[in-house]
Computed example of a mutant assay.
Amino acid sequence: MNDMEKANILHQLKTAFDISPELLETLLKQISNKSIKDNFKRITSGLTIEDNYKHIFSAMPWIKNIGGLHQAQAEKYKKNYQIPDYALLVEDSQKKNFPLLVDVKYVKGDAKSCTIIPKQKHTLRQYATAHRQPLLIAIYWEFIGYWTHTCLSHFGGKKNNKIDWQTAICNDLSHLLSDYTFLINKPFYRKTVFPKPADHSNRNYARHKLYGNFDSIFIGPDIDNLFKEDELFYSMVIDANFNATTVSIEDHENHMCLIEEFSSQPSMIKLSQWLLNLTQFMNIQPSLVVNEMHVLETARKVIVDLIHRLGYSISYNIPPLKNACTDELFELAYKDTTVMRDYRHGKV
């Protein structure tokens, strides 16, 4: 076992158990490579992003399995092959599954491009070819809090090993994994009813800072067409991604009524980005499970239901840079669909 593999195991141990600083230091001393030891915090931040990828994309409806490929690899094999981070099974348009390999990259801070070492690019491609499975590179762009999926052939530059964030977004294939993009092209509304006097007694319950706990919630595409939704999660996913504009505040004898408008301007919102915003809004880890249900999976179901009820459409990005990789993936995912026809129609 090499020192990087030891660092990975230590990261998993630190994630699963409450380890004291003293024990962590003792275990770190068993890593002889000074560079890995001194950069353990930076290395584990990248491993955390890998873990978050699994939790976020496990919540997607077309993902039928996602497993880490963290097997120890003998040094003699690394010359020709690098094992990607994840193996996925993805549901296609025919309700069958196809395999997909994903390697995760983390672009930290304000950096605007992702670079892969040429040898790593070669060995990843060799592994995918040998296993006869398509490969995507998943990149987390920290400066915008955004995930993209692209083919290795989308990387350019002198060594064909670099991609900037604009190119990655233009050629994003995340929708293959049911990471939809929603087109919010008209405002929607929420009416919240609060009992009087304001009830602030339950501090573990979400409430308005002035009007206290809510009595009921109504959401809809216009003020005169609202559907009742008492489940608080619907309001939480809205507040995680939209800013409210107050339309009116009505003071009745037994209750207050707050009417708000959301998203008066057109916008494109990707499902994974919405889920990330929700984790930050709720201050939770992407791995959180409540009552044996993954919180992000519950949130995804709420988001998709909300979008459906509000009448917004889903967009499937057609990459301007088409190649053998995108041809194969679109055929695997969208055979005999309008998405496949759109892809072929736009092909140069």
Rank of each mutant, 00 (worst) to 15 (best):
F227H: 10
L88R: 02
Q82E: 10
S35K: 13
D172P: 09
L288A: 07
F227M: 04
K6D: 12
I184A: 00
K322M: 12
H175Q: 14
E229G: 03
Y205R: 12
H55S: 11
I19Y: 04
K158F: 11
P118L: 02
M4L: 14
L173F: 10
A333Q: 00
N8P: 12
K78Y: 12
V295M: 13
I9D: 12
S174G: 14
N202S: 11
K322W: 09
A240P: 01
I19D: 03
C151G: 05
S313C: 04
N241S: 03
L24T: 13
V289I: 13
K347E: 11
L296E: 00
I139W: 01
H11M: 11
S287D: 11
G346E: 15
K162A: 04
L28Q: 04
D164G: 10
L152H: 06
N97F: 05
P99N: 06
L177S: 02
A244C: 14
V104Y: 07
K37Q: 15
R341P: 08
I223P: 09
I139S: 01
I217M: 05
C151N: 01
N241T: 07
I259S: 08
L13K: 07
T337M: 06
I169R: 14
H345C: 15
R207K: 14
E253K: 06
I219D: 06
W274F: 01
F281D: 12
D179N: 10
V302H: 14
P187A: 00
M268N: 09
L89G: 03
M4F: 15
N65W: 12
K79S: 13
N33A: 03
I219F: 01
A16I: 09
F242P: 07
W147L: 06
